[in-house]
Design a protein around this nucleic acid. Structure first.
Length: 417
DNA sequence: GATGGCCTAATTAGGACTTCCGGTGT
DNA sequence: CACACCGGAAGTCCTAATTAGGCCAT
């Protein structure tokens, strides 16, 4: 059984590394956050956990360093906080994070309260059906390994496509991989980023838009420790997903992509933070009004913003606080053309899934990341495995069990507050 | 000394991007 | 003109699988 103290949050160390860069006077603005307090770890159900690597990581210190321009800093702070606190507003408030930048507190203090995935049907009963696939007929393409001179070896686990396979030993060998598509899903479940930088345009079909493509690319670059990351580069990675059947491009709409499949328990954040019922109502309205402006590009560039507050205004074409209409949350042409996945002709029918099957859990628990979901999705397999050969998978499953208990307890406390 | 089990480091292959580019479309 | 978008090609980075070698117990 993993101990809490063994867990470490992936992004934290990334930022620690970044702090070293900053020490070298790079132009890479950043937030350096070290070590999530142990007692709070189980609040972080999302993203990647791993074991601590170095002694410094044990320090229970939360640092925030501000760098470069205010504008960049603001974006970085929001982004970094979002990444670090996918759902931990109760634990680490933004005021705590941004204590060195008090003037911004009012801008970024919206708590993440709705980002959630219910785990109640996960433990012990998760099967393939938990992962909703828009192309269920599709089977993973098994690429034959090239001939090798050495003795044959098992194929390395590929990136879990929507058909999802568990990446072996991810959690006990220090693996830090968070794939781009996972990263985007994480962002889409984070109120600090969604819909500010990225948002669903048709959540039940997996269609989303990069509202601020540059900001999203920069977040991705920060996660990958690639300061030069831009949308051009990230876009190339996204285009590779076409071939692999992970993403489709929604033709005729800039910066709009579609996941070919989503976890069934995916939680969809909308501009208005509306309830499940509201969302469904919105979707109905959209289908009735099918002629909204989603095709128009509302992308903007935060790079031209002079003040922080203004940057928040300008770079977000539909600021969360502007709650004029919840209709903003789901704006999509019903008849929009969608580029078919190259490897899966005939999957369109499956993609158009009824909104009635959408799942927005009423019980709001902290995020279970896509990564975790992939693992859980295979629990059926896990249960048939021998612990000796799949210790990490068992650990993950066991961790989830403890997570559920913890979340249930904390969830109860949160609702009473 | 031979054998087997365990551990660790080195090697290797391959996946997932990243970078660069030339081109098209809006 | 800027930007989004496309896909080829080559490169980098990271990680899992494999192998080799050392150590120890029997």
């Amino acid at each position: 059984m993993l101990q809490q103290s063994e867990l470490f949050f992936d992004f934290a160390s990334d930022h620690f590394n970044m702090s070293q860069q900053l020490g070298c006077n790079t132009d890479f603005p950043g937030v350096i956050v070290e070590q999530v307090p142990d007692q709070h770890l189980l609040s972080y159900a999302g993203l990647v956990c791993r074991q601590p690597r170095r002694e410094e990581d044990q320090q229970q210190v939360l640092k925030v360093e501000l760098c470069d321009s205010e504008e960049e800093t603001m974006e970085t702070l929001v982004a970094a906080d979002s990444l670090l606190n996918m759902d931990c507003s109760e634990v680490l408030s933004l005021e705590q994070h941004y204590c060195l930048l008090p003037s911004l507190a009012d801008v970024v203090t919206a708590p993440v309260t709705q980002v959630s995935v219910s785990t109640k049907e996960i433990v012990g009963s998760v099967d393939q059906s938990l992962w909703h696939s828009f192309h269920e007929e599709e089977k993973p393409v098994q690429v034959q390994s090239k001939k090798r001179s050495r003795k044959s070896r098992l194929r390395r686990a590929e990136s879990p496509t929507p058909d999802i396979t568990v990446k072996k030993d991810k959690y006990n060998k220090g693996g830090t991989t968070l794939y781009l598509w996972q990263f985007l899903m994480e962002l889409l479940q984070d109120r600090q980023v969604c819909p500010r930088y990225i948002k669903w345009t048709n959540p039940h079909e997996g269609i989303f838009k990069l509202v601020n493509s540059k900001a999203v690319a920069r977040l991705w670059g920060k996660h990958k420790n690639k300061p030069d990351m831009n949308y051009e580069t990230m876009g190339r990675a996204l285009r590779y997903y076409y071939q692999r059947g992970i993403l489709n491009k929604v033709e005729g709409q800039r910066l709009v992509y579609q996941f070919t499949s989503l976890p069934k328990n995916m939680v969809y954040i909308t501009d208005s933070g509306s309830s499940k019922e509201e969302n469904e109502e919105e979707e109905i309205n959209h289908k009735e009004n099918s002629g909204s402006d989603e095709g128009a590009s509302d992308d903007s560039d935060e790079g031209t913003i002079s003040s922080i507050d203004q940057s928040m205004e300008d770079e977000d074409p539909s600021p969360p606080r502007k709650k004029t209409s919840s209709v903003n949350s789901v704006q999509v042409h019903v008849n929009q053309r969608i580029r078919p996945a190259t490897r899966a002709p005939g999957q369109r029918d499956a993609i158009l899934r009824s909104s009635a099957t959408s799942l927005i859990q009423e019980q709001h628990l902290p995020i279970v990341s896509a990564e975790m979901l992939r693992t859980l999705q295979n629990l059926e397999k896990v249960q048939s495995l021998q612990p000796a050969g799949h210790a990490s998978v068992f650990k993950t499953a066991q961790l989830l069990g403890s997570l559920c208990e913890q979340q249930a307890a904390e969830g109860g406390n949160a609702h009473t507050k």
